[in-house]
Design a binder for these strands. Structure first.
Length: 552
RNA sequence: GCGCCCAUAGCUCAAUUGGAUAGAGUGUUGGACUACGAAUCCAAAGGUUGCAGGUUCGAUUCCUGCUGGGCGCACCA
């Protein structure tokens, strides 16, 4: 990339001073090069002078001036200036940008993908909603973030596996069974007392009805009946969750069942390991984990006095198993209400002698659903939550995914149903998709006008001289940096903002300059630019899992 | 009481991980289609970045203390 060339220029200048003995050879510097957000400060700038200044007891501008004087930059830059309080600003030759664009064209958009992961194996675990009820909009946000992060990491050199952890062994499933059982009795005309701690949603009634409809044989004994209904209901719910996810465009590589940990004895084994290392101890007939030894947290129970193991116990075992499966990086995506759980999990990994830094937890803040400008209530227990399915039916997959990725995941999200539903200029999804379709339309028009589209690949890019054209080229090449930053910081929403900014530049350009004209050479050059632009838009939308329509 | 997250334009949010004059969208006002898609564009107005300190060449960003909001602090899941 061009940034590397700038780094080389700076390095060259430093070397010349090293040769003169002005800079000690052992002084290692990593020049920071960034693209200034304001126009007028060049294409790239470096703040290296600020770091050198205290070491040489000279002012940053003086250092900067010295460095610039020794720079050889004629092949890449028009000029290099000292500006502000000591910044060095690099003004690249337009030709250098065009050349870079041409290179990307020849090598393919994939050549813009940064290698952040270096082939490391990453396991992204997300959604992992208990199969006790349908996914609601909060799960939807987690699903979108997880899926898009996975796409992003795949493009940036990670070997990614997407996993859904199914809690099919705990007490919630038991409760689901009891809920279904009572609804089932109810459906047979019996009067039952339906407790508040049971699942209130209508879907439980549906499941009970399904049991009747399918003629499932219900055992006489209550306990057996509940047990049967628990597994029946969990399966039904899990299936509908998978269907919802599919409709949302989320496909998991793996559904990992909690029960499998017990079946394989991993939980037992893990607890034994902790006991052996004296990180677990017995108190009041329960088994406790010494969380306090590792983190600023209280000790937590692994096995309750009634002999039942907590989710914490199986969760430690689960994460141990993840690492044993050879993953270098574990990304967990949790609802922000689980934040208190992080120290526990890290302590657990620590106690097992694993690197706790291998675990990265992304917290997803709550979603407020707005309808007619007013918040819509949401509570699983009361059954009045808005399901992901309902939202998808209302606004469609593209809009839903895009909206979920319009915020940093750790910030509250207001999801405006009315806005997401609008097929108008107010809806940001269409702003991006429209650009893609518009470019396609320009190509159709060009073809109709007798332009030989086969010549686009060999267009003379030197004809792209407008300021808007240069800005578009720069924005296209910036894709590399966006992917890199997004992957490093696990912030997939950056792709969304980039796309909005990118297509904004395009729409502006479109209104200013005419692409298809009598000047065939110029037309071809502009089509070349738009072809590249369209590929980037398509690539970025693919990361978001949003369609790139050719007509709309 | 302890801990985590958030606070930026009227509203919804960005800000290249500590950089230069804090930016978009929306809303308001005014403008642009008998040439490639007006689901678009152009312009104006809009700010003590919650408050008070600190760290330094430089703070929306890091530290401390407040204020206000969300969440968590069980042998719950």
């Amino acid at each position: 990339m061009l940034k590397r060339k700038i780094a080389a220029i700076i390095e060259g200048s430093l070397d010349s001073y090293r040769a003169k003995g002005a800079i000690p050879p052992d002084l290692v510097l990593k020049p920071i090069i960034e693209s200034p957000r304001e126009e007028g400060f060049g294409d790239y700038s470096s703040n290296i002078a600020f770091f050198l200044a205290p070491k040489f007891r000279k002012s940053p501008p003086e250092i900067a001036k010295m460095l610039v004087e020794a720079m050889v930059f004629d092949d890449v830059c028009d000029k290099v200036e000292v500006a502000g309080k000591g910044f060095i600003n690099f003004y690249l030759k337009d030709g250098a940008w065009r050349k870079a664009l041409k290179e990307v064209h020849d090598a393919g958009v994939g050549s813009l993908y940064p290698d952040v992961g270096r082939g490391r194996k990453a396991l992204i675990e997300f959604v992992s909603s208990n199969p006790t009820g349908p996914l609601h909009i909060g799960h939807g946000r987690g699903a979108a973030v997880g899926d898009v992060l996975a796409n992003l990491m795949k493009k940036t050199g990670y070997d990614v596996v997407k996993e859904y952890y199914v809690n099919d062994a705990g007490k919630q499933i038991q409760t689901l069974g009891e809920s279904t059982y009572l609804r089932w009795k109810e459906s047979r005309g019996e009067t039952v007392e339906y407790g508040k701690n049971l699942y209130q949603g209508d879907y439980v009634k549906d499941i009970a009805a399904l049991i009747v409809e399918k003629g499932v044989e219900v055992p006489e004994g209550r306990d057996e009946a509940v047990k049967l209904m628990a597994s029946f209901a969990a399966e039904v719910v899990m299936k509908s969750i998978e269907e919802d996810l599919e409709a949302f465009g989320v496909k998991f590589d793996n559904y990992f069942r909690e029960s499998s940990l017990y079946e394989r004895g991993i939980v037992e084994e893990t607890l034994e390991l902790l006991k052996k290392k004296d990180y677990a101890y017995e108190k009041d007939d329960a088994l406790w984990f010494r969380t306090s030894l590792f983190e600023k947290d209280e000790d937590r129970v692994l096995i309750k006095s009634d002999g039942e193991k907590t989710y914490f116990a199986s969760d430690i075992a689960y994460h141990r198993d993840k690492l044993d499966r050879g993953f270098d990086l574990l990304v967990d995506i949790w609802g922000s209400d689980h934040h208190g759980y992080i120290p526990r999990m890290k302590a657990g990994l620590n106690a097992l002698g694993r690197d706790k830094e291998a675990l990265k937890v992304l917290l997803i803040q709550f979603v407020t659903l707005l309808k007619d400008g007013k918040p819509v209530g949401m509570s699983t227990r009361s059954g009045e939550f808005t399901t992901l399915r309902e939202v998808l039916d209302e606004v469609g997959t593209d809009a839903a995914r895009f909206f979920f990725l319009m915020r940093k995941s750790d910030a509250h999200l207001e999801f405006d149903l009315d806005l997401a539903k609008k097929t108008s200029n107010e809806n940001p999804v269409y702003y991006v998709q429209y650009a893609h379709a518009r470019i396609e339309s320009i190509f159709r028009k060009a073809g109709e006008s007798g332009i030989d589209l086969g010549l686009v690949d060999r267009a003379n890019t030197d004809l792209l001289t407008l300021k808007e054209e240069m800005n578009l080229i720069k924005a296209i090449l910036e894709y590399h940096d966006v992917l890199e930053g997004g992957a490093r910081s696990s912030e997939p929403h950056r792709v969304t903002f980039y796309l909005l900014d990118l297509v904004g530049k395009f729409h502006s350009y479109y209104n200013k300059a005419r692409v298809v004209s009598d000047d065939t050479e110029l037309t071809l050059a502009r089509l070349f630019l738009l072809r590249m632009l369209q590929e980037i838009i398509r690539d970025g939308l693919a990361i978001l899992g949003v369609s790139a329509p050719e007509k709309m």
